[in-house]
Each structure stands twice: as C-alpha cells, then as structure tokens.
Write a protein that binds this DNA or RNA. Structure first.
Ligand SMILES: Cc1cc2nc3c(=O)[nH]c(=O)nc-3n(C[C@H](O)[C@H](O)[C@H](O)COP(=O)(O)OP(=O)(O)OC[C@H]3O[C@@H](n4cnc5c(N)ncnc54)[C@H](O)[C@@H]3O)c2cc1C
Length: 471
DNA sequence: TCTCTTGTTGGCTGG
DNA sequence: CCCAGCCAACAAGAG
C-alpha cells in the first residue's frame, strides 16, 4: 500500500536549514527519503586555525541542524575526507536516485562539483541567492558589471521569486543512520553573540523587522543607524546568511511584506533590501566570472610591501583610534559593521597602499561571516578595482569619519582600553594631548600614528593617478 | 551602431 | 558659515 519513497542524498553545504530549503523540495506524489550528509573537507578547513570563529560557527550550526533533524527522527551523516571519494560511496550504499546540493558558484565548488557530477547524478539547486545569476541579465543578455542596472532588473524578479513562498511540500523523511559523534572532535565553544541555530536567525529577522513603538534600532531606523559605529543599527544576519541558516528569499519576502504594509517606511526597507541585492550582485559576479576580462590593475599596482605596517593594521596599532577599534573588534568578535569594514579597507589600501588581497585575507581569517563573494567584492570596490568601484580619489579620512559615526567616542573607548579615559575631542585624536597629559591618562602604550594622513592622501592620489596613466 | 546619461557609501578648497 | 566645483576619465547600459 505505502508507496516506496524516492531516495535522495542531501549534501549539506551552505544551506544548513530546514525552512525554505529548495534542496528539500518534494514535488512528486510519493515521500522523499532524504539522507543528509555533511563532509568535513580537510582541504577547506585546513586553511584556517583550529580556533577560527567561522569554523566554530559552522560546526555549531551543524550541531543545531542535526538536533532539528533528530526531532524529525533522522540524523546527519558526518564524514571527514574528500567529497569526491565519500559522496559516491554513500550514494551507492544508500541506493539513492540522486545527490542534491545547493549551487555554489565559487571556484572551489565549481571544480569540486564538476568532478563529482561525473561520478553521481548531482542535482544543483537554487537557494544561495534570492535571484539566480542567470536570471538577472542586461537587455543585450550580458552579465551586469555595475550595481544600479543590476538592481533595477533584480527588483521585480526578487519580488516574484520571494512571492513563491511558502512552497507546498510533499512528505519528507530523514534517514537515521551514521554517526554524528565525530562532531565532538571539533570546536564547540558557544558564541553568545551569534548563537548558531535556525530559530535564532528567524528571531533576529523578526525582531529587526518588527514595528515597535518608538524604536531606537532596527529596520525602522536603518538609514540613520546603519553607519553608526557606536550602535548596532543593522540586522547582524550575515553569518546566518553565510551558512544558509536562513533563506535569503524568505528574508526578502518578509521585507517586501513590511514594505507593502507600511509605505511610510519605504525608504528604510528598500535601502535594506538593496543590501540583500548587493549580496546577490556579488554572487552573480562570481557566477559570471568567465564573462569578465581579467582586470590587471591589482597585478600592476605598485602596492607597498610593508609588512610592519600591515601588522600594525591587523592588530589595531595604527595610532588612529577608530581604525584600531575596528580592527580589535574584528579580531575579538568576528563581526564589524559595513562602515567599519569600509574604513579599515580604505585605510589599508589608500592610506597605506597595501595590497587589498592582504587585507581581504586577514578579514577572511577573522570574520564570522567571511564570504569570498562579498569580501572580495567589498575590498575591490574600496580599492577601486574593476568596473563600478569607488573612484580613486574617494579616500576616507579616519578622523572625519570617526567624528561623524562615533560622535561621542564610545566605540573607541569600548575597544581601545588605552584610550578609555579620554574625553571626546581627544579620544579620536590622542596625539593632540601633551606628553604630560598622555602620562596622566595612562595611555603611554598607545602608538602615535604610523602615517601622516595628508601625506598619505597625496601619495595615494598620485600613485593611483599614475597607474591609470600607464595601463 | 551611435549617442546620451550615469555611476552606494568622500574630502578639501576657495569663494 | 555653506556649498559648488573639483579630484579623471571611462565604460556600462539604455534607448
Ligand atoms: C571590505 C568589505 C568586506 C566585506 N566582507 C564581507 C564578508 O566577508 N561577508 C559578508 O557577508 N559581507 C561582507 N561585506 C558586506 C557587509 O559589510 C556585511 O554583509 C554587513 O556588514 C553584515 O552586517 P549585517 O548582517 O548586520 O548587514 P545588514 O545591513 O543588516 O544587511 C543585511 C544583509 O545584506 C547583506 N549585505 C549587506 N551589505 C552588503 C554588502 N555591502 N555586500 C554584500 N552583501 C551585503 C549581508 O548578507 C547582510 O547580512 C563586506 C564589506 C566590505 C566593505
């Protein structure tokens, strides 16, 4: 009587969720028996230290997902090794009809998937972005290189895609073989700031979008708060989106919903939605890499190979309080706001003229949401690399920016304890104090600026100008 | 194919 | 005090 289920493998990657996961679509009239598999690939995790905050978040997410699947009577099959060896074995042992995975356009994934696709029927599904790269094309069917036209074309498709929610789904069962205890070998410190679970991601989204009376934070105040360093004016959903604990199209769907019902917040909500569009934009850029000629700028640029200054930047000892606060927050919390990322990146690439790839690499080591699409995209944009990037003369002044986005110096005092005793005008410019005052404030250990801002600005302008002339 | 408009996030200067 | 003009060009994309 009971219909035999269709057996599929769910190769879990950046889609660690049960809610709105296209991989789990069942549109046939018999049950789907899903065998969830996660492969810990040493070549991927080996790039990072054992205490890496993002890996920790990933393993915690996996534990949480496993608990959710156990509630449904199943269990994740966790393996350690090379996916192209492991996946085919499980595939044939389980007798699956296909292996499903979320499409990931990064270079590593594409190479890996091509290889595995030759060994098993690999069905790659959408879900990483709101709108797939191949669905946002210019009139002449080319990939967009700049954001604004991409965004215009993206908008309607995003409304359409996200309106297809929720999907009516057929019955799904999970297999319960395999031994998840291997997870115990990996990092498990709990991160209080970013608890790794689907439910946490949903809670964050809802509270960010909620329309409480006289709110001081959240979507309703997004535009005025998003750049403030002394507040958390954004959703902090980035790590959850990074590992797919929440579906981007569901996020956008809820945001569109708020938009439709509350036209008075149109400007705030659409600004926030545009950030999700940036996320899609950078993913699409990676998907369409083959359509972009290589930009030689990065290779030819006379980046300064100043390892000492690079280290000062990394460890928050540049002598510019706002930059140092940012770099210390990054290393301790693994999350910094978009404004903070821009300031840090601009300082490294413009003021210090150090290769953006050094900075991007450091970010990837320390960001809990570190993601090659957005990270490379952000760094290139700031460094002025590629079409649509910031013009070369757009150089942030850390003092001006600090006064604007950390007006009372609270952010600096929180992250740079050497300066915690300084009153407002000095907290952003401690070099204005006399030696005696520096001693009195017990801030002797705090360094003097490693570059002169005006000289550095002139140097950046001439260097960028010169390269333009020679390429 | 040609033409026209435009491009996330800034800072400094001189009137 | 404010703010227009400038720091350069150029490629992307619409029509
Ligand atoms: C130099 C640099 C490096 C960056 N590196 C990363 C990275 O490694 N991983 C990452 O997720 N984002 C990165 N960003 C983009 C952005 O800074 C973060 O996504 C954002 O600060 C995350 O905070 P939030 O979730 O509170 O954002 P919100 O403002 O609440 O935005 C919601 C979501 O939209 C997406 N988003 C927002 N801004 C951007 C953007 N500029 N580009 C792409 N997606 C965006 C994120 O997924 C974010 O979670 C980088 C930006 C710069 C300038």
């Amino acid at each position: 009587m009971a219909q035999s289920p269709k057996k599929v493998i769910w190769w879990i990657r950046r889609d660690m969720r049960l809610i709105d996961n296209p991989v789990l679509t069942n549109d046939i009239d018999r049950p789907l028996l899903v065998c969830p598999v996660f492969v810990i690939d040493p070549t991927l995790i080996g790039k990072y230290s054992a205490h890496n905050i993002r890996l920790e978040f990933m393993f915690n997410s996996l534990r949480s997902l496993n608990a959710d699947i156990e509630n449904e009577g199943g269990r994740i099959n966790i393996h350690y090794g090379n996916p192209h060896e492991i996946i085919p074995v499980i595939y044939s042992e389980f007798g699956a009809s296909e292996v499903r995975a979320q499409y990931d356009p990064s270079q590593v994934s594409r190479i890996r998937d091509t290889k595995i696709g030759k060994l098993v029927p690999l069905k790659l599904t959408s879900g990483l972005s709101v709108v797939g790269a191949s669905d946002v094309r210019s009139q002449s069917d080319k990939a967009y290189k700049i954001f604004t036209p991409f965004y215009k074309s993206w908008w309607n498709k995003a409304i359409y895609n996200s309106s297809k929610l929720p999907k009516i789904n057929g019955e799904i069962q999970f297999t319960n073989f395999g031994d998840p205890s291997i997870l115990n070998k990996f990092l498990s410190n709990s991160n209080k700031q970013f608890p790794a679970s689907e439910i946490e991601a949903q809670t964050r989204l809802n509270s960010f979008l909620s329309l409480t009376k006289s709110p001081t934070l959240g979507m309703v105040k997004y535009k005025s708060n998003k750049d403030r360093l002394d507040k958390i004016g954004t959703s902090q959903l980035s790590p959850y989106l990074r590992f797919g604990l929440i579906s981007p199209r569901l996020v956008v769907n809820k945001a569109f919903d708020v938009l439709t019902r509350n036209p008075e917040f149109t400007s705030e909500v659409s600004t926030w939605i545009s950030e999700l569009a940036w996320r899609d934009f950078y993913i699409a850029k990676a998907s369409n890499m083959h359509e972009f000629e290589d930009v030689n700028f990065t290779e030819y640029f006379p980046w300064r190979l100043d390892f000492e200054q690079y280290q000062s930047w990394c460890f928050g000892k540049t002598g510019y309080p706002i930059i140092d606060a940012i770099m210390r927050q990054l290393r301790i919390e693994g999350w910094i706001s978009n404004r903070a990322r821009m300031l840090a990146a601009s300082f490294l690439t413009k003021q210090l003229l150090i290769d953006w790839r050094w900075g991007a690499n450091w970010f990837m080591q320390h960001l809990i949401d570190g993601d090659s699409f957005a990270n490379d995209g952000g760094w290139k944009w700031i460094a002025g690399v590629g079409a649509g990037a910031a013009p070369f003369f757009r150089i942030f002044n850390p003092i001006v920016q600090a006064k604007k986005y950390d007006p009372n110096g609270e952010y600096v005092r929180r992250w740079v304890p050497e300066l915690s005793g300084l009153p407002s005008p000095y907290v952003h410019e401690p070099w204005l104090l006399t030696n005696g005052q520096r001693l009195d404030n017990k801030m002797n250990g705090y360094p003097l600026p490693i570059v002169d801002l005006h000289e550095a600005r002139d140097r950046a302008l001439t260097t960028y100008k010169k390269l333009r002339a020679t390429t």
